[in-house]
Design a protein around this nucleic acid. Structure first.
Lengths: 196, 196
DNA sequence: GTCTATATGCTGATAGAC
DNA sequence: GTCTATCAGCATATAGAC
């Protein structure tokens, strides 16, 4: 399998995705040109089309890969036996995973409007799958009498929003470590659903 | 002061802002051209420059006006005497105000990266002023023994994020009215800070 | 106050040389 | 696998007619 040629094809593809992610997240999909991406990688614009059929596919694949990695990572996460433990694990997992890849998170939340309608539907389905993971924990906990929920859907959405919001203000090297933030948020989440 | 000419200058300015808001929110600042805005208003592209020095100022003024209206509206809102009542009022106000102008909210949160650094600093200052209003309520409530806070800043940010998140999923004519959503969220916010 | 015309430069994508 | 050259079109902003 090993090859010895001087070709850089095997690394150029990933480099293109990396550059596109960085530039799309920083300046917005509509504001980034294929030439800018090419310049960042060190190739000419035309060479990009050996790796992607067009700009839209580049965006879609970045978002799809991000969502699939998110779902896979949660699937592999140790979760605890009961609903309160699983909720705490979810909160800490969500914050950790999202703080580890701020650019992909930003892209996935901010550039949905730039997707074609077919691509949008694909990403939306993955997003709903992830929300469903949290909703399931809440439903189970309510059924077991561990949680009090005014409204399952609103509780799900508010928890996701408050957790994802960490990405807008967290700065590395600040007052609190990621783990400390995760723990404080897990506690706040717990209080939202704690029975009176 | 009244004028009788056939000129439409007095309405063209607002129409331009309205069209720009709609298009920037829908497609993204970088993806919208001055020609598109002009077409939406029914004038030629060149005519826009009678009302704004450039595209960047158009964006900045939309965001600045939005933030100033937000601060002014909260200033005029009936707030209640004690911290728990003021917190509930804040939650219901925030959701109501934001659901009333989804496009301006979307713009103000999503296009910060499109601002020049001076303009960004201006918007950022207004945003921090608004966060300060919530932080003050929480601080007062903690001092009075009405609230339990693990961390003032993290609680402030998590409440803002969960409230603003309503804009991403709420649809007019859905299962719950704006007021019902506001009440349920106010209850969830209360539980986050309720002493044990 | 709005128009047309224009300057100058960039856009996504393709064709064909090497 | 990457390059150069190119297509047809659109970008922001300005100048000057009316």
């Amino acid at each position: 399998m090993a090859r010895k040629t001087g070709s850089r094809a095997e690394i150029t593809g990933p480099l293109i995705r990396q550059a596109a992610l960085r530039l799309f997240a920083r300046h917005g999909y509509g504001a980034v040109s294929m030439r800018q991406i090419a310049a960042e990688v060190g190739v000419q614009a035309g060479a990009l089309y050996l790796y992607t059929p067009d700009k839209q596919s580049l965006l879609y694949e970045l978002m799809r890969d991000h969502m699939q990695e998110l779902l896979a990572a949660w699937r592999d996460e140790p979760k605890g036996a009961n609903a309160p433990d699983r909720l705490s694990a979810f909160a800490r997992f969500h914050i950790r995973f999202h703080l580890e890849r701020p650019e992909a998170v930003f892209l996935a939340y901010m550039e949905l409007r730039a997707l074609s309608s077919e691509n949008f539907a694909g990403i939306e389905a993955l997003r709903q799958q992830y929300e469903g993971e949290l909703a399931e924990i809440l439903r189970d906990g309510a059924a077991a009498g561990d949680f009090h929920l005014d409204d399952l859907r609103l509780t799900t959405m508010s928890i996701i929003a408050m957790l994802t919001g960490v990405n807008t203000w967290y700065r590395e090297g600040g007052r609190l470590s990621r783990e400390e933030v995760g723990q404080i948020y897990a506690d706040m989440v717990r209080r939202i659903v704690e029975p009176a």
